[in-house]
Write a protein that binds this DNA or RNA. Sequence first.
DNA 1: AAAAATAAGTTGATCATGTCAACTAAATGG
DNA 2: CCATTTAGTTGACATGATCAACTTATTTTT
Lengths: 148, 148
Amino acid sequence: MSEERKLTEAIVSELSRSLIEIAWHFGPKGLRGECCDDLTMPEFIALEKVSMTPDCPVQVVGHPLGFTKSGATRIVNRLARKGLIDKVKSPQDARICCVVITEKGERILRSANSRYMQKFKELLAKVPPETVPEVMKTVTVMARSLKR
Amino acid sequence: MSEERKLTEAIVSELSRSLIEIAWHFGPKGLRGECCDDLTMPEFIALEKVSMTPDCPVQVVGHPLGFTKSGATRIVNRLARKGLIDKVKSPQDARICCVVITEKGERILRSANSRYMQKFKELLAKVPPETVPEVMKTVTVMARSLKR
DNA sequence: AAAAATAAGTTGATCATGTCAACTAAATGG
DNA sequence: CCATTTAGTTGACATGATCAACTTATTTTT
């Protein structure tokens, strides 16, 4: 392996390690108790999916999370119990359960989102401001590529 | 709120949202079954901590994870059962249990790391290559700032 | 030096959260 | 109209973390 190649490996290694650290801190334990109603990370992702998908079927809620339909049912029920979403039988197809976000859900989602943003801003404050747009572009592209 | 301010908010919001998505895919469900011996993400982080800390006390393993000492004991025991670490009573202080990584642990850690790198490289392949160093610097700084 | 406080680690009980497989009920299509 | 597929649910189970109570070892106080 060439010297240059080794250097690249080292860079990618550190980069991926750093990202994992960020992932963990933003992750399952990241928002604990810091947000109203104690929304966990998967709950946040699920709620966001519901808010962005009109008449969202239960299974679809599980997609961005990589859950089985069983897991999807459970997280949907949890959010429903908390009053953040409603389950409505579809008029077109009675098998399908349209999940819709409630007023309270919208409020909580906004609140949780701003919490995450706060956390993220604290991070951004430590990097040179002129690089922020570049970083944003990159992160966005990476995130988008995950969706396929 | 000024127009400019609103724009910044929108950018930060999207950025943090994207990062959460990346976090999730790199996260608890990200490496499932893809790595030898099925190392979970917390196990990976714990093992890495052990490998970087000479004679690592049990509780310290839990620090980067945000675990209680109880949780630390359990994850340490799990890694020990898998033969990835050894627990040695400290000669200085018999209360302390020095955790050290084994040969096998080193091997698995390298292997898991390269899996994560692979995943990360796939992501990086989608961004303009000339921005990679910039992104690396930024992500590293952000990760470092989390440690305090 | 003995007693009290502190600290590291463990463990039983419990909780939260996800999977799997079997199920119900509704739609679809030969 | 019956067979198949599909959406969703549920019971049994596995995993993984917490909490509080505990043991053992060290340090501090008196």
